[in-house]
Design a protein around this nucleic acid. Structure first.
Length: 337
DNA sequence: AAGGGACACAACCGCAATTTG
DNA sequence: TCAAATTGCGGTTGTGTCCCT
């Protein structure tokens, strides 16, 4: 539908300019239906192996890298094609506000979607929308009494932070909201934080409620602090089938780190999370993984660390809550169609 | 109807990390 | 231990299509 396959588009290999010893000329450009068929048939018959072998054995005049890309982004049978739903869009904005441009990690939370697809969607659609929103502020945006921040706020916050990062302005990895006075000389920071807190609150609350427990989280930007309450059955709160977290005697909570992969070296190195796909929350059982304890008695504790995209330390809070969410399990997302 | 800008998206590029021999 | 090969990722490009003037 885009570029027509160009049978004359033949070049050398793409890796580092290609190897001069390669006498086979490798095709580039759009894939023809015939090439697709070859690749599909090969993959379905032989499964995935070394991609250069795939290219060779499938009789494709493509480099392995090209085959891999084509398979992953277009031919894989489990891909979900078509436009992004508003729910998916919300999840993308949500995750992007947390993960930044880690498209592969965002894609990992959206079954059937590829990183390339999400990246394109973000760059072509969402980014533009955010830009428009930030240039034409919503009349409600300044209404702090509005108890129901909307998606625009989420997107505006995400977009603002994203654009700041694009301009080379990096926020601290952790911002202690409890120490962020509303009269801070950094009005910009306050604005970002307040907007972010406002924006993420409904997302968090909504997502937590999806688990069918009494879990509810909210931010309190007016007090420049973030508060998370987790009310749960008795001792645990759950995902559909898995223990999601627990409260120990109403005092301490154990958090199971979700499979957000490679979120900073700390997490990566400290956790030996289970990659078993049947363990959607990658429950960590080692005592070494009592991530964060939180005094939940007395109406909840004010905790003020907000993660803004680069590293997540095990043991931090707030947006980490967002990270606990395996959005693929959220019933409002239709991943089946 | 034609021209041109905006949009959407497949595919390429370059780099870094990982694996292999 | 090291170099080469492979894999994976994010940024960018190129082009068909849509829509407006």
């Amino acid at each position: 539908m885009m570029r027509k396959p160009d049978p004359t588009a033949v070049k050398g290999g793409i890796n580092g300019g290609g190897s001069s010893s390669n006498t086979n000329k490798l095709r580039k450009g759009l894939w023809s239906p015939e090439e697709d068929d070859k690749l599909i048939n090969y993959m379905l018959t032989n499964g995935q192996g070394c991609w250069s072998d795939v290219a060779r054995n499938a009789g494709l005049q493509r480099c392995g890298k090209s085959c891999r890309l084509r398979w992953i982004n277009y031919l894989r049978p489990d891909l979900k094609r078509g436009a992004f739903s508003p729910q998916e869009e919300e999840v993308i904005v949500h995750l992007h506000s947390i993960l930044g441009n880690r498209w592969s990690q965002i894609a990992a939370r959206l079954p059937g979607r590829t990183d390339n697809e999400i990246k394109n969607f973000w760059n072509s659609t969402i980014k533009k929308r955010l830009k428009n929103l930030s240039s034409t502020p919503s009349p409600n945006a300044s209404d702090s009494s509005n108890s129901e921040p909307n998606k625009k706020d989420v997107m505006a916050a995400a977009g603002f932070m994203s654009s700041m990062q694009e301009q080379g302005i990096n926020f601290p990895m952790y911002m202690d909201l409890s120490s962020t006075s509303s009269t801070s000389n950094s009005s910009l920071q306050s604005m970002v934080l307040n907007q972010t807190c406002n924006s993420l609150a409904p997302v968090l609350e909504h997502d937590l409620n999806m688990f069918g427990s009494a879990a509810a989280g909210y931010f309190n930007p007016a007090a420049a602090s973030c508060v998370t309450q987790v009310g749960v059955n008795s001792d645990n709160f759950y995902g559909e089938n898995e223990i999601f977290g627990s409260v120990d005697n109403g005092v301490e909570r154990e958090i199971y780190v979700p499979p957000l992969e490679n979120i900073g070296e700390n997490l990566k190195t400290e956790n030996t999370y289970d990659r078993n796909i049947n363990n959607p929350f990658n429950i960590i059982s080692s005592s070494n993984h009592n991530i964060k304890t939180e005094n939940l008695a007395g109406g909840g504790a004010a905790v003020g660390n907000i993660w803004l995209g680069e590293e997540l330390k095990v043991g931090e809070w707030d947006l980490e809550d967002l990270m606990k969410l395996d959005v693929s399990s959220l019933p409002f997302l239709d991943f089946q169609s």
